[in-house]
């Protein structure tokens, strides 16, 4: 009897030891998993409507350059990013917003009014007013962004 009780006590102690080990491991493990996957599980920043400026700045028929800055938060670092868009309208109601980044190697394109086209100085690419490639190496038209007008202000959906 005595012998049996000892074994039982030993068995119980052994079980308890493992149980405590398990508790402590879980105490480390579960927070550790949450800790590691935390930033990955965070929802991606949504695209925002970025205010560009007054509608009245856009000349009819001429792409107008708007510059704006957005803040981008990655980890503990906040970056300011400058975004530029060419906005043009034929009728003052429907607006088109084009990126000013050449789709070839990322140089800035600029609007050459005399020729009615965008010109990229890096490799002499030319884009039409609607962003289509006219000549040069770019693989696709200039990127377009959704654009809306509210209370006389222009907004572009971008960032994120």
């Amino acid at each position: 009897m005595n012998e049996k009780r000892t074994i039982d006590r030993r068995g119980f102690l052994g079980f308890m030891t493992w149980a405590i080990g398990g508790i402590i491991s879980a105490g480390f493990g579960i927070p550790a998993i949450a800790y590691i996957i935390g930033p990955a599980a965070r929802k991606e920043e949504e695209q925002n409507w970025i205010r560009l400026g007054s509608v009245s700045k856009v000349e009819l028929g001429t792409p107008t350059l708007f510059k704006t800055e957005i803040e981008r938060q990655t980890g503990w670092i906040t970056n300011k990013e400058e975004l530029s868009f060419y906005v043009f309208t034929e009728n003052g109601r429907d607006f088109v917003a084009l990126s000013n980044i050449c789709t070839h190697l990322g140089c800035r394109v600029r609007w050459i009014a005399d020729q009615g086209q965008f010109f990229c100085p890096c490799h002499n690419a030319a884009f039409a007013k609607n962003g289509e490639v006219i000549s040069g190496p770019p693989p696709r038209p200039l990127d377009q962004y959704p654009v809306k007008e509210e209370d006389g202000q222009l907004f572009v959906l971008g960032g994120g």
Partner: peptide, 18 residues
């Protein structure tokens, strides 16, 4: 024996510390 008699004590103390 070290296990489980002593180790149990150690485990208890460790749990308390934790």
């Amino acid at each position: 024996p070290f296990y489980p008699d002593i180790l149990f004590k150690d485990a208890v103390v460790s749990l308390l510390v934790f």
